[in-house]
Simulated scan of single mutants.
Amino acid sequence: MPRTLIITNDFPPRAGGIESFVHELALRRADSVVVYCSSPTRRDDAADPGFDLRQPFPIVRDAARVLLPTPRVAARARAIVGLEHCDSVLYGAAAPLGLLAAGLRGRVRRQVALTHGHETGWSGLPGAREALRRVGETTDAVTYLGDYTRRRLARALSAPAAARMRHLPPGVDTDRFHPGAGGTEIRARHGLGGRPVVVCVSRLVPRKGQDTLLRAWPRVLADVPDAALLIVGDGPYADRLRAAARDTESVVFTGPVPADELPAHHDAADVFAMPCRTRRGGLDVEGLGMVYLEASATGVPVVAGDSGGAPDAVLDGETGLVVDGSRPGPTARALIGLLRDPDRAAQMGARGREWVSRDWTWDRAARTLDELLTAP
C-alpha cells in the first residue's frame, strides 16, 4: 500500500497545538503513514519516554533537535520515500520544511504543506516571503486555518498557488474534552474548592497574554474577591510571570502537565481565558488557538484575544468574548461579567460544546486531508 511521509518538527511528546494537530492527522491515517521528525528535548523525553513505541505507525527520529531543509535532511527524506514506498508527502508546517518539496518532485505523486500562525509572519518578511512563495509553487496544495491566515498567505503566494489553497483547520476530540472530564480533582489538587476559577492553558510566551491576565487580575478580585487564576503550562516567560504574580495568593502556576490531564484542567474552569495579542508588527501572531476550541468542547465559555485568527475559534457573544489582548481593562471586564453571571457563562459553554461537536471534528479534517493527498 502506498504511504504518506509526514515530515515535521512539531510532534509529540513535544507539547503544543501544532504537535497535537499533526499527531491527530497521523493517527487517522495510521495504516498508511511514516513520520520523519526531529528529536524531542530531554524534558519531552522525560515527560513521555515510551511515546514512539506506542504509536500505530513508524517514526523515524532525526538526531537534530530541529529539522531544516538542508541537503542532509533532503537526502534522508528521499531515502525514506524509497524504502517505505511513499507516494505523497505532508509537511507538518510549510515554513521551513516545505522547502524540501522541490527536491522530492518526481519521486512522489502529491505534496501538501500545512500552515499555522508563524507562516503569516513569514508572509510579511522579505526573503521569508519569497521562500513561502517557493513552497506554494513546488507543492500541490497549501492549507490555511481560517479567513485571516488565508488572506495573509495569499498575498505571498503566486496566483496559481493561492488558487490551490485549501481550508484545513484542526478538530477537537470531544470524547476527551467534555464536561465532567476531571475538573473536580484538579480543583482539589490545588486547593481551589468551589471558588470561581479562571483557567489559561498555553505555552508561557509573551504572545499568549498571561501577563495581560495578571495585570487584569487585581480588577477582577475587586469585584470577585474569591476568584482564582490557574495558569497551566510552561515556557520561557515562566519566571517573569511568576515574579509578576508573587504578591497574590489567588494565582496558581501548575507548570507543565501531561497531555492526558489537559481536559481535566479545562474542566476545572468557570471561564477559560487566553487574551493573546499580535506582536512584532504582525510577525508574531496567533494562527487560530486550539485551546479555545478544547475549552468550548469542555463546556466552558472563553475569553480570547483578538490576535490574527484567534477570533475564528470563537463565536463572539455566543461561545465566548473576543477582547483586545494588549490591554488589561477589556480582559478584566469580560472575566468579571462572566464570573458574576454564571447562567450566561453556562449558556455560552453549552453553545460552544454544540458548535465544536458539529463543526470542528477530526473526521472532517481527516476527510479533507485524504482528498488532498489522493487527488489526481
Rank of each mutant, 00 (worst) to 15 (best):
S202C: 06
S123P: 03
Y237V: 13
R195N: 12
T174W: 13
E137I: 07
D226N: 13
G209I: 08
P170C: 14
G171M: 05
A238K: 13
T184F: 10
L145H: 09
D239V: 15
G127I: 05
L145S: 09
H190E: 09
R129G: 04
A228E: 13
V232F: 11
G191R: 09
D226C: 12
L221A: 12
R203L: 06
R152P: 04
E119Y: 03
L192M: 12
G124I: 12
G209W: 11
G127T: 12
R176Q: 13
T143N: 05
G127M: 12
H178W: 12
P170R: 10
E130G: 07
G182R: 00
P169R: 06
T184G: 15
A159W: 15
D223Q: 15
L153R: 01
G235W: 02
G209L: 10
G180R: 04
R133C: 11
S158L: 08
H118C: 14
G171A: 12
V199M: 07
P179D: 09
L213V: 07
Y237I: 11
C200S: 05
R207Q: 10
A162S: 05
T184M: 05
V220M: 00
A181R: 07
T138W: 07
L157H: 03
D173C: 14
A154P: 00
L157R: 00
V112L: 02
R195E: 13
A159Y: 02
R152H: 11
A161E: 00
V201M: 09
A128N: 09
T212I: 07
A128G: 12
W122E: 01
Y148F: 10
R155Y: 10
H190R: 07
L153Y: 02
E185Y: 13
D147E: 14
R151E: 12
R219W: 06
Q210C: 03
S202V: 05
R152Y: 03
G124Y: 09
L229S: 11
A128H: 05
T184V: 08
D226E: 06
H118P: 07
T149G: 14
L132G: 06
G193H: 00
Q210N: 00
L214R: 08
V220T: 01
G233F: 04
L230A: 03
G233W: 03
R176C: 05
A113P: 04
I186D: 09
V199R: 08
E137C: 13
Y148T: 10
A141Y: 07
K208M: 06
H190C: 15
V220H: 00
R134F: 06
T174N: 05
T212S: 09
V197F: 00
L214F: 08
A222H: 06
T120H: 13
H167S: 14
S202A: 15
P170I: 12
R176A: 04
V224P: 11
C200N: 06
V199H: 15
D175F: 10
P170V: 08
W122A: 11
L132D: 03
A227L: 04
R150Q: 15
G117T: 02
P218R: 14
V197D: 00
G180H: 04
P160V: 01
V135N: 11
A188T: 13
P160M: 02
G124F: 06
D223I: 09
A128Q: 14
T120K: 15
W122P: 01
G193V: 03
L153T: 01
R152I: 03
E119R: 01
R207D: 01
G136S: 14
P160T: 14
L145I: 10
A222P: 14
A113R: 07
V199S: 04
V197W: 03
V224A: 14
A238E: 15
V172E: 00
